[in-house]
Design a protein around this nucleic acid. Structure first.
Lengths: 274, 274
DNA sequence: TAATTTTTGTAATTTTACTACAAAGCAAGG
DNA sequence: CCTTGCTTTGTAGTAAAATTACAAAAATTA
């Protein structure tokens, strides 16, 4: 530990449980004992006294007290308080996959909770700068062509509605041939807005490649690190709670929210420019 | 107080701040002093000691202690803990409207938070029974016709995708004339699935009335208490955080999640029946 | 108004958390 | 391999915080 008194200086914005988890490897044995004991059941730890927690962890009371102070708290009671808060917001960290034996109530709450978790992850990862750039580009564009296939076709339709409502010139060509046609007939002022849940669909990558051939600006709404994302000039990347199957949450809800944010941005921006 | 020792017996599921607020009128002066002092800034109260809180409220320490015990807690520390938790989850109770002067970061987080708040409200109000009934009806139906106009057209398209993916026979007639045609040519086994953000759009109500004339089953995805909702045989009602304008959150995200839940229900159900 | 009940506060007790200090463990240098 | 100096951990004492028991005050009822 030596001079590094506050383990978590570099992650003070994250919640206490995250901090502890990520600090775990940097801790020495006594601290690790305490951390593991708390992390095993944070909720339960908030109910314990310093004496009980020390005994359970096999360390002395002052060790627990010192441990607490290392995590940016004034002492044990303050630590417990912050831990309790973290445990509440942490409900959304653990995702619960839908299982075939779940009854209606179970899978309903699971899906809603997982979707909320995904939105929270999205909130943490979203780049305001990219949104700002996207809003600017959308407003500047003379024509916006939206492409989305399969599961993303509804999202594409939604984008068309929202952009039209915001007073932009948006068009969502329904079939693939039309989409290709649009992509190969680029004119200055055109903008391509490509939507994909996977970012790997062959047909949409073709559209992106066609656009690139013409040096056309391409905004994509796709998972980070996908092929589509790499082909685009402006990336609105959507993280997703990993290790979660398609059934267990609505990733499209996140896409929808992203579109909503863009629409709001356009409205806000337009109000200022006249 | 007399024999009623636990003020909050009838609302134990709500969080502590809600309980205090609703109990406020039933409290006597000393208790009211304490409650008001805490409610003025619950977050700050969690940092105070019993002595400070007592002094600030103009009462004695044991009074504060007794006050805590009335709210289903073991004592002051436990009370503070539960208060802290309530304050955290309470973030989602207050919604923040998007303002024209908001910068990118501000309106982005506001929209995401408001959408989460809306999903939470939805979670609390959703009827599992209605979902169960809807899933059953959808599986039983020979043909499902989906109708949604304007902002709901994308949602309708999404419903079509999801139902088709689940192996059902779903169809979303794009234009209004087709929709009317479909509604007036009811055959046994048909099911109408009507989607509306307002539940008051004239054209969709016409479709619902046409269906009703034929005694056709109608599932609606609409706000509670709307005209469309009253016309339908099965209502999937969507509450929304009130006093929030269209721009400030994505209500469609909630609709999308509802569709996702139905699709999951269909998959789960089908797995059991073979 | 007196008697009874309820409410509130004072004072003592207990519990809990914290601090000072000393012992043990560990690393670098002789 | 031992010593010196540093870090880490624990023990014991101290301080603070919360709780309890009890008594006084206020309110209620007859």
């Amino acid at each position: 530990m030596s001079q590094m008194n506050k383990v978590a200086a570099w992650s003070s914005e994250l919640n206490l449980i995250c901090e502890m988890r990520s600090a775990l490897s940097h801790l020495n044995k006594t601290e690790k004992k305490i951390a593991q004991n708390i992390l095993a059941d944070p909720e339960a730890a908030t109910q314990k006294s310093i004496a009980v927690l020390a005994k359970n962890s096999g360390v002395s009371e002052p060790s627990v007290n010192r441990f607490c102070k290392r995590f940016d708290t004034t002492g044990f009671p303050d630590f417990k308080l912050k831990l309790a808060k973290a445990a509440v917001s942490g409900i959304w960290e653990t995702v619960h996959p839908v299982k075939p034996e779940d009854d209606t109530g179970k899978y309903t709450t699971k899906i809603i909770n997982n979707t909320i978790a995904n939105l929270m992850a999205f909130k943490q990862s979203v780049s305001y700068q990219q949104i700002q750039l996207a809003v600017d580009a959308l407003i500047r564009a003379k024509r916006i062509f939206i492409v989305g296939l399969g599961g993303s076709s509804a999202t594409a339709r939604d984008a068309e509605c929202k952009f039209l409502q915001s007073g932009l010139s948006a068009c969502y060509p329904v079939d693939l041939i039309m989409q290709r046609m649009v992509a190969s007939n680029y004119a200055v002022g055109d903008l391509y807005f490509l939507i994909s849940q996977t970012g790997e669909t062959k047909e949409i990558i073709e559209v992106a490649e066609l656009a690139k051939l013409n040096n056309a600006p391409v905004i994509c709404l796709a998972p980070e690190m996908s092929r589509l994302s790499r082909l685009s000039t402006l990336k609105l990347q959507i993280v997703r709670v990993n290790s979660l199957d398609r059934l267990s949450f609505s990733s499209q809800a996140t896409y929808q929210v992203m579109l909503h944010i863009l629409a709001a941005g356009i409205s806000v921006q337009k109000k200022y420019n006249g």
